[in-house]
Design a protein around this nucleic acid. Structure first.
Lengths: 339, 339
DNA sequence: GTTAGCACTCGGCGGCGTCGAGTGCCACCA
DNA sequence: TGGTGGCACTCGACGCCGCCGAGTGCTAAC
């Protein structure tokens, strides 16, 4: 029994359906791909594939369409890696190297990815918690308020205002700034507890409450994961999909507008895989995304993942191409942040 | 000749069309509104209104639909101000006062506005150029690179890296920081030229090139209008419109993805009016927005407009309600920034 | 200036028949 | 046993047709 051919048939169905967006029948299948058998044979194979849940027919006497399970098998075992063209590599490189600051890098990346994939692209800002601290700056605003500005190695800047119970002596601010930067500079959140504690202890007991307030804000800001930001591009690409299946886009856009949903999704996917992760259709726990697939990868300096990027589109997408693009952009992005 | 009644008819047509989204005919018009005349009379009036370009019929023997010109007249002269309900006022107030920092304020505002109007909402970040400077911070990165962090009164933070030709003496950094903050703190871009020049002159000639590089970056950053950021919410509200007129949404979403387009639009509208400005259909110069209306208003502390907010939707929108919401949110926003 | 009446227009809708892609099954072949 | 050709069947897509009704413009009368 030729199990191989069945897989060939499945691959052919996925490929055809992705390009034509029409249920694919046995005749066109043998024509477009050089399978050396007759339509009738293919029909038998398709019956088996359908029985096993890899494909389905929208209605009697229409061609077959891959199910989520079918796409999954395709992605895991059938799709060949599709290397990017030289032109695409050049475009990525040129597009990203011009960037001037972190905002710009993120902005360019997300646009680039949406253009490469023709899907909705998503880029998460480098997480504060996982980035090393570059510098902490303290700015007295008035007697009992102090502005704390936190700058990470990845170039992200965050600011918080600290309300002080009692005024802090003005002369202490430079000292506190210096101590903070010496002890905490270059470290990540996970390595900060000791150094920060020692900073507090370096001050006179009478000053410690104020110092502790500042230190706590620094720690809290770095720990704050809810503040994570996301940028998105290529939403209009969804409308192409809507022309095919009117109405399916609404819940997707609503999901996209809830950054929380996206963040949770990306975080979950970080656990799926070390490299590029793929979620197909119902594999996305969020209901609105049940006909949507997401391809995501992590990026960050020094092989340390600080955030993720992804592309999102209808389950009927070019997985090989999308995976290649996401992986490529993630790598360039890592390189830029490291450099 | 009763010109008044014709205007009543126009108003009635706009109101009916906005709620029903169907061309409105003479019979239903007299029924739904208590005009004390017969359909035939209305038909005559409608013929006049059509002649004058305020209404049009999609095809022979359908009802009438307002033209852009008709909406314009409606907005300018016919629509009554629609005060917000107490519940709405409370919602605005509650929603905005909880915000913790500028990002949060902007984020909440845009969501709020999209919910109130059921349209796409847009909020522009407070412009750097028009905000007063609160503080400039300098952080040496290595021998020939200096990080400049700029903080405005509205709470916006911007950072730039300066590449120095020759290393700047480390001891000079605190002095430069101090001088910058004394001379420039609290001033707007337009008042900065003199103070900045005097900062440069306060240094020894040998140090001036480096100092000037830093000062130039500060000035350039404040002057940079291209870097203006915009946030958006409620894109999914457009899809409702697409159900009525399939295909019209695509160009709009594409326009929205180009922040430049939106920024130019908001800037143009700033000149239209001191209060709330309205652009209807073809009045938007951008081609993709020719079936879209935009309602915008400025906000800022101390009566000084530092940025704008707006709502955007199909020309067939509830102008009175949208205008009221935009105005209200702009006012609360101003109050928060001032406080 | 308003109204009633009337002929006319035209898009929307539902029914109908045709067409064709695609299927499942069965008998047959190597 | 697996592959193949043949065949009857299904069912959505498409185009045609005729009806219905909302809406109009015009004219003659009030």
């Amino acid at each position: 029994m030729s199990d191989d051919r069945r897989l060939d048939v499945l691959r052919a169905i996925v490929e055809d359906y992705v390009t034509t967006n029409e249920p694919v029948g046995s005749r066109s299948l043998v024509e477009r791909h050089g399978l050396g058998v007759s339509p009738a044979t293919i029909r038998n194979d398709m019956a088996v594939l359908e029985e096993a849940g890899y494909i389905a027919q929208p209605h009697t006497s229409a061609g077959r369409v891959p199910t989520d399970k079918g796409y999954r098998l395709f992605v895991d075992r059938l799709s060949a890696v599709k290397p990017l063209s030289a032109a695409e590599r050049r475009a990525i490189s040129a597009f990203l190297t011009d960037a001037v600051d972190l905002d710009d890098v993120v902005d360019r990346s997300v646009r680039l990815l949406s253009q490469l994939t023709h899907q909705v692209a998503v880029v998460q800002y480098p997480s504060l918690a996982r980035s090393a601290l570059r510098h902490v700056e303290l700015v007295p605003l008035d007697d009992d308020r102090l502005l704390v500005v936190i700058i990470t190695e990845t170039g992200r800047v965050e600011q918080r205002t600290v309300e002080l119970e009692h005024a802090i002596a003005a002369e202490l601010v430079p000292e506190l700034r210096a101590r903070l930067n010496v002890s905490a500079g270059g470290r990540r959140l996970s390595e900060l507890d000791g150094p920060l504690a020692s900073v507090v202890e370096a001050f006179a007991v009478s000053e410690q409450p104020a110092v502790r307030a500042v230190v706590d804000v620094v720690r809290a800001t770095l720990a704050e994961t809810t503040e994570e930001r996301i940028v998105m591009a290529g939403t209009s690409n969804l409308l192409r999909a809507d022309r095919d299946f009117p109405g399916t886009v609404r819940p997707v856009i609503e999901a996209l507008e809830e950054q929380v949903v996206l963040l949770r999704l990306l975080t979950e996917m970080a656990e799926d895989s070390v490299d590029v992760a793929v979620r197909i259709g119902h594999e996305n726990t969020h209901a609105g995304l049940s006909e949507t697939s997401v391809v995501a990868a992590g990026y960050g300096a020094d092989g340390e993942t600080v955030a993720r990027i992804g592309a999102l589109g209808p389950t009927r997408m070019d997985y090989a191409g999308t995976i290649a693009s996401v992986r490529a952009v993630a790598r360039y992005l890592s390189r830029i942040l490291a450099g």
